[in-house]
């Protein structure tokens, strides 16, 4: 194991973490502010990827496709809020889970009907299609750097938006005590609608940005949804700062575990069982981490204040 490889794997871990944060950000926002469990976040992420592919086919320009996809996702998010979600805010979590699970099934099937079951692809935008040499023989696509940068920008943007603007103040107030905010003359329903639409847009943004690296297929949101929930639980439910740090932590733990578990186990056991046990342990690591966090800090690493 060389130092070079270790550094590369740390970078890979951070990049995976940022990717997870992009997905978990919208989920955290919606849950933190509205106390609403949105299982449909994963399919909204999938929809973002599909919309980007569709608009790219129409326009041939990634940037325009991205903007159009975000706009369409926002509209769709508002529509979903109007038709389904606003009737669920006052219900308990179980009913929210069941309703949003229904949306998962519906949208997965709808996507298959519209675009077919075959996976689709989105090319990396021309100007970012280059790569840099990270270590001898390994190129690092510039697009991955763009994803890292966009994740950091989203993090900063959310931080400023939530803690430095008037809307952010209302959002925080609404999260703490929605009734009181409403009594003070703020239209809390509209605020929720805006937050929800924004959350959908964040999910779609993640989907569109990741589409050039991952395959775009029905059900692509279901796997990431679980990871996004793990991020949220470890970080402290509803805490944006927690989600960011937890995403990086999970990215690092998962990537380093996958990279070095077998090598480490080889020090204490013969190579053949190490090869079998290593990956099993590596894929459990983030869940073990979650269990430990839940045991020692049931509210997560960085619990949101006022909850």
């Amino acid at each position: 194991m060389s130092t070079g490889l270790f550094v590369v794997q740390v970078l890979n871990g951070l990049q995976f973490g940022v990717l997870l944060f992009l997905i978990a950000a919208g989920l955290t926002l919606v849950f933190g502010v509205m106390d609403f469990i949105n299982l449909a976040h994963g399919v909204q992420y999938m929809l973002g990827a599909y919309l980007a592919v569709a608009f790219y086919a129409l326009t041939g320009n990634f940037l325009i496709a991205l903007v159009l996809a975000l706009a369409a996702a926002l509209l769709f998010g508002l529509l979903l809020e109007f038709v389904v979600f606003r009737h669920l805010y006052d219900r308990d979590h179980l009913e929210q889970v069941i309703a949003t699970f229904g949306i998962i099934i519906f949208l997965n099937q709808a996507v298959k009907t519209v675009w077919g079951a075959a996976p689709l692809t989105l090319p990396i935008p021309e100007i970012f299609s280059g790569s840099i040499v990270l270590m001898p023989g390994l190129l690092y696509p510039v697009w991955r750097l763009v994803i890292i940068a966009s994740g950091l920008v989203v993090a900063v943007l959310l931080y400023v938006l939530v803690s430095r603007t008037r809307v952010g103040m209302l959002v925080r107030a609404g999260a703490t005590n929605a009734r009181m905010v409403s009594a003070l003359g703020v239209d809390i329903r509209r605020l929720f609608m805006v937050v929800f639409g924004f959350g959908t847009m964040l999910a779609a943004f993640a989907g569109a940005m990741i589409a050039p690296i991952l395959s775009v297929e029905p059900g692509m949101g279901d796997t990431v949804l679980i990871l996004a929930f793990v991020v949220m639980v470890i970080g402290g439910i509803g805490s944006m700062r927690g989600a960011f740090l937890a995403a990086l932590l999970i990215g690092l733990v998962d990537t380093l575990g996958r990279s070095f578990a077998v090598d480490i186990l080889r020090l204490v056991m013969p190579p053949s069982p190490a090869r079998t046990v290593g990956p099993a342990i590596a894929s459990m690591l983030i869940y073990v981490l979650m269990a430990l966090v839940l045991y020692f800090r049931p509210a997560g690493l960085f619990p949101a204040r006022g909850r």
Binding site: S2, G4, L5, V8, Q9, N12, G13, Q15, F16, L19, L134, M135, P136, G137, L138, R144, I213, L214, T223, V224, T255, L256, R258, S259, V262, R275, T276, G278, P279, A282, S283
Partner: peptide, 23 residues
């Protein structure tokens, strides 16, 4: 080398780095 990944893994950057290192 022999590498087993979790079923359904999305991102292979860690494995790709290993492959590059093993050339």
């Amino acid at each position: 080398d022999e590498v087993y990944v979790p079923l359904g893994q999305l991102d292979y950057s860690a494995e790709l780095a290993k492959i590059a290192a093993a050339s």
